[in-house]
């Protein structure tokens, strides 16, 4: 089997099959890679604010927008159901208005993906808000004690 000498006829056939499998897989991987990179835009789930502005997405076109909820931007209207907040990618910011229930993870400084369309005056009207959570997992107590000692922000930056 594996230890059979490769200079026999059977050994040569095995070697041939080995290279056949190897080259087929390589060619297949290359083909799939090309297709995926060509489709990059449609595979990506959302645009960030910079994409949205640079691509001049027309008003009313249904898209997904993703980024961080900007600090101190979240407000609740008097009806108690309509929310305003800004989504930022660091370079650009888009204001979003949304009427409906927010997911539990929604908060300022956290990632979020909203679905909707550009309305008047550059305000994005969202019909759905999804919260994105990051890859960090920490016990509450650890964060509380870090906050108490004023080290929280620092610790967060170190983990990035």
């Amino acid at each position: 089997m594996a230890s059979a000498p490769l200079n026999t006829r059977a050994g040569k056939r095995k070697k041939k099959r080995f290279y056949l499998v190897l080259t087929s897989l390589t060619v297949l991987a290359l083909a799939v890679g090309l297709v995926l990179s060509a489709l990059e835009d449609s595979i990506s789930l959302y645009l960030d604010p910079t994409d949205l502005i640079e691509r001049n997405i027309p008003q009313g076109q249904h898209v997904r927008l993703g980024g961080l909820v900007a600090e101190d931007s979240f407000t609740k209207a008097d009806d108690g159901l309509t929310y305003h907040f800004d989504i930022t990618d660091g370079a650009n910011t888009v204001t979003v208005v949304y009427k409906g229930a927010l997911p539990d993870l929604f908060r300022e400084g956290q990632g979020v993906v909203v679905e909707g369309a550009q309305g008047d005056a550059g305000i994005f009207i969202a019909s759905e808000v999804l919260a994105k959570h990051d890859e960090n997992y920490m016990p509450k107590e650890v964060i509380d004690s870090l906050k108490k000692r004023g080290l929280y922000k620092q610790a967060e930056e170190e983990s990035l």
């Binding site: 789930l45 993703g66 999804l130 890859e135 960090n136 997992y137 650890v142």
Partner: peptide
């Protein structure tokens, strides 16, 4: 493609927590 999907495209799913450069971003507990 599954493993690197969260790095190659933007997704709702978060990136890796255990197997990634710079060590795990999950508390030992």
């Amino acid at each position: 493609i599954i493993k690197f999907s969260v790095d190659w495209w933007n997704t709702l799913h978060q990136p890796a927590s255990i197997i990634k450069s710079g060590g795990a971003s999950i508390h030992p507990d």
